[in-house]
C-alpha cells in the first residue's frame, strides 16, 4: 500500500543554513505519526515543507504517491491538506463564526450553518462564543477553534504543530482527546510536539527528529525510552521540558 504522506530524503534550508538533511518518513492513510524532537530540530520546517509553505531544497515530497514538491499551498489546502500552525491558529479579529467560515472553500462545500453545526457538535464550548472575536478567547479555546476549523472541512491530512504550546496540561489533555477522536475518523495526522507524553498515547508511529535528521523511528512505546537522550542530553529530567520552539 502506498503511504498517503511520504518524505524521501527531504532537505530544506533557511537562507544559507540547511535545517533538514535528508528526512525519510512515511504515514499510511488513517494513521497518526508523531514527530518529536528538541527545539531547533527542524520539526516546524518539516511541516511547512509538507504544507507547501517552504520549498524543499532536495528530496521528494509525495502525497498519495504523487510528487508534490513545490505545490501551491493554497491548492494543497483546498484538496484537504490542513496545517494548524504553532501558536494560535486562529484569526484574532475575526469572530468565531467568521473563523469557521474561512473553511467553506472546500469543493464538497458545506453551508455555513452546517459548518457551525459540526464545529459546535465537536466542541460545544464554541457554541456560546460564535459572535465573539477569536482573539478574546482563552488559549485553549483558540486551539479548539483551530482544530474545529480544520475538522469541519474533513481534511484528508491534518498537520498539527505544537498544539500544546503555552497551554495548561488539562487543556492539552482535552485537545489530544479530540485528536484521538479525529484519528478514529480515518484522518491521517502528522503531529509535531515537544510534549511527548500526551502525543505518544495518540500516535501509531513516532519519529524523533534531531538536528534535521531522523534519529529514531518506530512504535511509540519504543520511542518513549529513547527520548530523554535526544531531548535532555543527560540533564536531570525534572528541570526540563525543552520549552517552546520558535
Amino acid at each position: 500500500m502506498t503511504p498517503l504522506v511520504e518524505l524521501r530524503g527531504v532537505r530544506a534550508r533557511h537562507g544559507r543554513v540547511e535545517v533538514l538533511h535528508g528526512v525519510d518518513l512515511a504515514v499510511d492513510a488513517g494513521q497518526v505519526l508523531a514527530v518529536l524532537g528538541p527545539n531547533g530540530a527542524g520539526k516546524t520546517t518539516l511541516l511547512r515543507v509538507l504544507a507547501g509553505l517552504h520549498p524543499p531544497s532536495g528530496g521528494e515530497v509525495l502525497l498519495g504517491g504523487r510528487r508534490a514538491n513545490g505545490a501551491d499551498p493554497v491548492d494543497l489546502a483546498r484538496r484537504g491538506l490542513c496545517l494548524i500552525p504553532e501558536g494560535r491558529g486562529v484569526f484574532p479579529s475575526l469572530t468565531v463564526r467568521e473563523n469557521l467560515w474561512m473553511t467553506t472553500h472546500r469543493p464538497a462545500g458545506l453551508s455555513r450553518a452546517e459548518v457551525e453545526e459540526r464545529a459546535v457538535a465537536r466542541f460545544p464550548r464554541l457554541g456560546q462564543r460564535l459572535r465573539q472575536p477569536a482573539g478574546t478567547m482563552s488559549g485553549g479555546e483558540q486551539q479548539m477553534l483551530a482544530l474545529a476549523r480544520a475538522l469541519v472541512c474533513e481534511p484528508a491530512v491534518l498537520l498539527l504543530d505544537e498544539l500544546s504550546m503555552g497551554l495548561a496540561p488539562l487543556v492539552v489533555a482535552e485537545l489530544y482527546a479530540s485528536v484521538r477522536a479525529i484519528a478514529a475518523d480515518d484522518v491521517t495526522i502528522v503531529v509535531v510536539e515537544q510534549f511527548a507524553a500526551a502525543v505518544l498515547e495518540v500516535a501509531d508511529t513516532a519519529a524523533v527528529l534531531v538536528e534535521g535528521r531522523v534519529a529514531a523511528a518506530g512504535p511509540p512505546a519504543d520511542i518513549a525510552g529513547q527520548l530523554s537522550g535526544a531531548y535532555l542530553g543527560g540533564a536531570p529530567p525534572a528541570d526540563h521540558r525543552p520549552a517552546g520552539t520558535t
Partner: peptide, 19 residues
C-alpha cells in the same frame, strides 16, 4: 511535564470583545 492534574487557567481569560 503534565504529570498531575491542575486547574485550567486557560478558561478564565475570555474577556469582552474589545477587538
Amino acid at each position: 511535564l503534565g504529570t498531575s492534574t491542575g486547574t485550567d487557567p486557560g478558561t478564565g481569560t475570555a474577556g469582552a470583545g474589545t477587538l
